[in-house]
Design a protein around this nucleic acid. Structure first.
Lengths: 240, 240
DNA sequence: ACAAAAGTGTTCCTATTACACCCATGG
DNA sequence: CCATGGGTGTAATAGGAACACTTTTGT
């Protein structure tokens, strides 16, 4: 294509020949590891490859709503956090034409999910973030970018509650952090630092059922209102 | 438009009716303040409003190259840093159709710039980041996002050298940081912290010409190779 | 000799780290 | 009563913040 030979009117129309999609990196924590949701592709291109949940977006559809729809559809839960990573714009990233994709990362609680298993449309599994296989399109690059964002978020802020149940033990929170950071943390220092932020509060309930020996641990929850207000006021809940 | 009435073949084509643009938030430092480059629009829509430098992107053009072209064209320099902010995707952000814009922020040295002044195409000025007027499209939102990124970058990392000359005094570096952070810094602590990172090195030259009284200050420069290598290795040059 | 800016060390204090025992519960 | 995990405090250290004077140069 040569811009110079187009007349002004052809020119303007020519801009409106691109498409965009959204691509979701959905994170959860399980077995003390960070997992990513991938879906086996049932059709070309990249048939048989695992890929991130993604979808084309119609010109008059909202991007964010499209992401919400995809995350809900594929996980079966509507309690999740999401945030845009960036646009992925390689010219050759999609074989069907110029399709730029807006990447999002998302946190869900794996225990609350109901993956659509075994139907023709999708076969989805949680894979360990440390052993992501070769994925379709540029999805490995998107996972890498998402991983950096997850790391940056959790290593500087008190966040990621959507990967736990609404009520959680401090040990579960700590294990999520250890999985994200890739190293162990001191129990006492961790509890002190978290609780000093004043937004994680006791519920008064103990974890149940409790099969282990010893005392059942206290359940805590996020004071979401205080958290959101303080974030809106610029507080970053720095913890490391 | 109603997706339900489209046949599958019409359906696929329908995706390819969007356009995208790039929008650049170009930062510089001058008079101990962070400035943003804005251009007065000579045509509709938003004729007469100030806007960020931006441009539509053809379906087969590279986004990043388009950004480079725009930044060079509007500033007249080709020494700059740039990084994607995110995609701005509001359905109604552009009156001519569905145009999502990929936002970039950029650092340039204002002293090295040659703005295209007074021609019909553009009238561009540096405005203080603290007093940005109402801009065209969703450009105020893009400036806000860019400002947060600039703050995050400079307040956690040793960065922003592209806003200074290749050789700079530590005082100039400090004043850039003070402008970005919005508060003064202790000279001795600042120098200690910066130099302890080992990537800012003396050139042996003194700043010249030197009209002030007293001793002319030492010029320093970034050891770019070491800096890039250490960044590639995951070093974040945290300084605060 | 004086005015103006450059350049340099030390002390104090706060924040982070490292570390070990008692308690409650269920079998 | 014993095995297991939950829950708590303190001492040592390192890093950040506060702070003032001497040196150089041009007028």
């Amino acid at each position: 294509m040569n811009n110079a030979i187009l007349s002004p009117s052809e020119d303007l129309n020519y801009y409106f020949r691109s498409a965009f999609s959204v691509t979701c990196v959905i994170f959860g924590v399980d077995e003390k590891a960070i997992k990513v949701l991938v879906v086996k592709r049932q059709k070309e291109p990249y048939k048989g490859f695992y890929a991130l949940p993604a979808g084309m977006v119609y010109p008059n559809d909202s991007i964010e709503e499209r992401v919400d729809t995809i995350v809900k559809e594929v996980t079966g839960t509507s309690r999740f956090y999401k945030k845009q990573i960036r646009a992925f714009t390689d010219k050759s990233r999609h074989p069907l034409g110029r399709v730029i994709s807006i990447g999002y990362y998302s946190f869900v609680n794996i225990a609350e999910c109901n993956l659509q298993q075994g139907n023709l449309e999708s076969e989805s599994i949680w894979i360990d973030l440390k052993s992501v296989p070769e994925l379709a399109f540029d999805h490995n690059e998107i996972v890498q970018a998402a991983k950096r964002r997850l790391l940056a978020k959790l290593s500087t802020q008190l966040a990621g509650f959507e990967m736990l149940s609404e009520k959680f033990t401090l040990k579960q929170l700590q294990e999520m952090y250890e999985a994200a950071l890739g190293h162990e943390l001191d129990k006492r220092n961790f509890r002190r630092k978290i609780l000093s932020q004043d937004v994680i509060v006791e519920t008064g309930e103990l974890l149940t059922p409790w099969d282990e020996s010893g005392k059942a641990p206290m359940l805590y929850k996020l004071n979401r209102e205080l958290y959101d207000n303080r974030r809106a006021a610029g507080d970053h809940f720095e913890i490391f």
